[in-house]
Write a protein that binds this DNA or RNA. Structure first.
Lengths: 226, 226
DNA sequence: GCGCGAGGTCACAGTTCTGTGACACAGAAG
DNA sequence: CTTCTGTGTCACAGAACTGTGACCTCGCGC
């Protein structure tokens, strides 16, 4: 069961307690506050995983709290409100909210929406890209092939990332020199070729018949997953 | 104005045409189909940016289409339906949808929800993280401070990324040794300290009074943006 | 203030990385 | 086939990186 650090902000004590209890039952870890100021302090100090924010708050209202949180962080925010007219929804979402839920809401629906938002965040911020057996973990700066770790040097990794960034496209040597080495090198040098060769030696099962990095004679190299 | 490649799937011709027109007016580029099969073919062939999917479809229903798209790709999906009861919402979201909208829906509300989902996707997959003047471009593996490029060595970059991954949290030396050097080193070594010092020398305006990487005596280091 | 332990700083040697040039090789053109 | 151009391969020297140990400094408890 996933446990998320939820920050709940709701001024009505009975609604707050009810939601807190329900979300805790769903397996979340919840911290609840009644005002926007407290919520902002909590965000600054503790960085919750997700914020659930009532719109009608005393003091700073929910939409404004949402805007201020956005200035601090890009963490997910779900707005919660009794007012469900179209303009409110549009304004709320444009303030940077990820979802807008109209009260009263079934706890399991809210839970499903929380999970949807978190799931999206996770899959999108996944630090790894994979092409068949080849996995590039950009968070850890590691590359694995069929679960075996491959050691790439910084230059090799940069070149590979640059190629991978444009899958299927042919990138010429001049472009790669600029992008990876960022100096305007002599155009005629074995530099790129040598680096490609070193990468191939590490990631291609049969370097002579490349599966990942293909040579396009007269143009450059193309990364295309098998 | 942002232009998104939207795939719209809706069997009712009048609703389909209406939404297509409205979304086009909002600046999106829309392709519309009436059945799930056509939609799946389109996803396979063209990879739209986002899919808006009616639940009640002839043949394969929307929720099932959603599941099958998820097997192909993690692209965002908004479910659209006339049935708005709680169970439907939960089932729809659990099938992998990013949002669930009940018809009839104001076009500008749908637009706002589309933008919210796309915004989340963008900010999460952004290749660059910035903290004040400090910008870490994980795509290009480059770090800039106040627009001046800072050269970090691979080990330094890894350590910085590891610290940045847990903003506000104190990470102890043992953890960092494992995460960055991944061997169980002698605990008492100046290794981590020396590396932190090297990073500070490069990114801290006044290394003696660090703004980014703070020492927490007795525990370790904490990255916290200024 | 004193002493202690934790962290900062530094220089250096061993290691790794990288750009270069020479040459081999392959594919296209004639 | 011959030639020509573009790419693959390799070894090597210079450059960059990194872990280590010694020593210095700071903060804290006494």
């Amino acid at each position: 069961m996933r446990v998320a650090g939820i920050l709940l902000v709701e001024d009505d004590p009975s609604v707050r307690t009810g939601l807190e209890l329900a979300l805790t039952r769903q397996g979340h870890s919840v911290t609840a506050y009644a005002t926007g100021e407290e919520a902002l302090d909590h965000v600054r100090a503790r960085r919750p995983e997700i914020v659930i924010l009532d719109v009608m708050l005393p003091g700073i209202d929910g939409v404004e709290v949402c805007r201020r949180i956005r200035r601090l962080d890009s963490l997910p925010i779900i707005l919660l409100t009794a007012r469900g007219d179209d303009l409110d929804i549009v304004v709320g979402l444009e303030a940077g909210a990820d979802d807008y839920v109209v009260k009263p809401v079934e706890p399991r629906v809210l839970d499903a929406r929380i999970r949807a938002v978190l799931r999206r965040l996770e899959s999108a911020s996944a630090d790894r890209i994979s092409f068949g057996d080849l996995v590039i973990d950009r968070g850890a700066l590691k590359v694995t092939l069929a679960n075996r770790e491959i050691h790439l040097t910084p230059t090799e990794l940069r070149l590979l990332l640059e190629l991978v960034r444009h899958p299927g496209q042919v990138l010429n040597r001049r472009y790669l020199l600029r992008a990876v080495w960022d100096h305007n090198h002599v155009a005629d040098s074995r530099l790129v070729d040598a680096c490609v060769q070193r990468i191939r030696a590490k990631i291609e099962p049969v370097p002579a018949e490349p599966v990942f990095i293909h040579t396009v004679r007269g143009f450059g190299y193309r990364f295309s997953p098998p």
